[in-house]
Design a protein around this nucleic acid. Structure first.
Lengths: 155, 155
DNA sequence: GTCGATGCAAAGGCTTTGCACAGCC
DNA sequence: GGCTGTGCAAAGCCTTTGCATCGAC
């Protein structure tokens, strides 16, 4: 049998993180975070997609609450907002291993690949330091054409 | 006397670029591009700001046309859309010298610094190559806290 | 029992679009 | 003169918010 998804990991942290802020652990918040945990780190979901996916698994959460929860979880550092101008605001799980990851996006078909790079992080840290800033996060967006679309453009 | 702003450079290219696409050179399009040329490469303007600044210099362009023109000039590669989630869509002049420039943004007050980095471009090219993509542009967004805001957060 | 969270629906930005008129080529 | 571009206003997203009710602690 498939192991029952155990949102214990982050959800346990969720309860106490919320408590520290005088906020409550609700089924809705568990559902949203649980969804991101189920689908893993690679996923980039919009608010609408989160709402739809939860509906499909019979976990009703109103769209307004999805928005409120995405904002909350982002401000808590559990989710991370993506910066892809193509296709609106999206969110993904912000696991520690994922803090220095970058996006390679095909501007024609939207195909997105992730990659990591120590060099980029170093460059970001250097720039922040030189301007007296304290680095929080650094994300490289590479806009490109994938193999197929590149070929199609030649026509 | 101050040299009369000569939008000849890009505007000359503008006329022919437009012509190639079967489109026309209008005063409105010249005004929008001229504004970006006047204020130089460092500026990041929203549609609303473009509209306001043009009004202030008595160059009337309707907001709808500003939006249409920003989109047109971006698709022509003369302007470039920024990818700063804080504070909405912004545009800047896309000069050749500016193709590999990055943004250091204070997430609290919005202060934005630009910087360049050959290392970042190399990393982007490497990633694109490894996935079989053809690189168009690569932009590093460093989210950070500026000195002041960093100090304020400690309180 | 209190106070924060939710759901619904309405309001709110920002951006795009339909249409008649203007004006570039 | 034809056909694209403009201005205006209305419509369209996506997102946030007000308010009554619900429910976590």
């Amino acid at each position: 049998m498939p192991a029952p998804a155990t949102p214990a990991l982050a959800s346990g942290g969720l309860r106490s993180s919320l408590h520290d802020r005088g906020q409550r652990l609700t089924p809705q918040r568990q559902r949203v975070l649980g969804l991101f945990e189920r689908i893993g780190e690679g996923a980039h979901l919009s608010a609408e997609e989160v709402h739809q996916r939860l509906l499909r698994s019979d976990e009703r959460v109103s769209l307004a609450t999805v928005y409120r929860t995405l904002r909350l979880l982002s401000s808590m550092g559990l989710l991370q907002e993506l910066e892809l101008p193509e296709g609106g605001r999206r969110f993904e799980l912000a696991s520690a291993a994922h803090r220095d990851h970058h996006h390679l996006v095909c501007v024609r078909c939207g195909q997105t690949e992730e990659f990591e790079s120590a060099a980029v992080l170093e460059a970001g840290e250097l720039a922040a330091h030189q301007h007296g800033f304290r680095l929080l996060e650094c994300v490289l967006n590479v806009r490109a054409l994938c193999r197929c679309c590149s070929a199609a453009e030649q026509l």
